[in-house]
Amino acid sequence: MSEFTPAESRKHVKAYMAVFLALIVGTFVTVAVAMIPWLDLGEPGKSFLDYSVGLLIAIVKASLVALIFMHLNHEKGMIYKIMLFTMCFAFVMMFLIVFSWWNPIQEAFTSH
């Protein structure tokens, strides 16, 4: 990548602009879904569906940033390995921490 021709740079810039547009659209959609009453998904008010859609858009946006801006679409194996483990541990952390609210034994005794 040390040789960087103008043609190549134009290709790069094009991709960046496309992503830019996608990110802006994504942001608009997120806010619209949250604010415009007739776009209220699922039950009235905030519901699981609203959260899912919001998070989904956020994940797509984040992936675009990571893949294109941060060049993860053509990165070296070592970086993938590092980030894979990291994401894995981050999810494990969140999942297991939240999981600890779930107490089947207590529930069996309190929920009738």
Binding site: M93, L96, F99, S100, W102, P104, Q106
Partner: peptide
């Protein structure tokens, strides 16, 4: 070693499901 931390917390009242894990 990232998946065992809560063995320090068995008696905290943390859920039994996660204790088993």
């Amino acid at each position: 070693s990232f998946l065992v931390w809560a063995h320090h917390m068995y008696i905290t009242g943390m859920g039994a499901g996660v204790s088993t894990f």
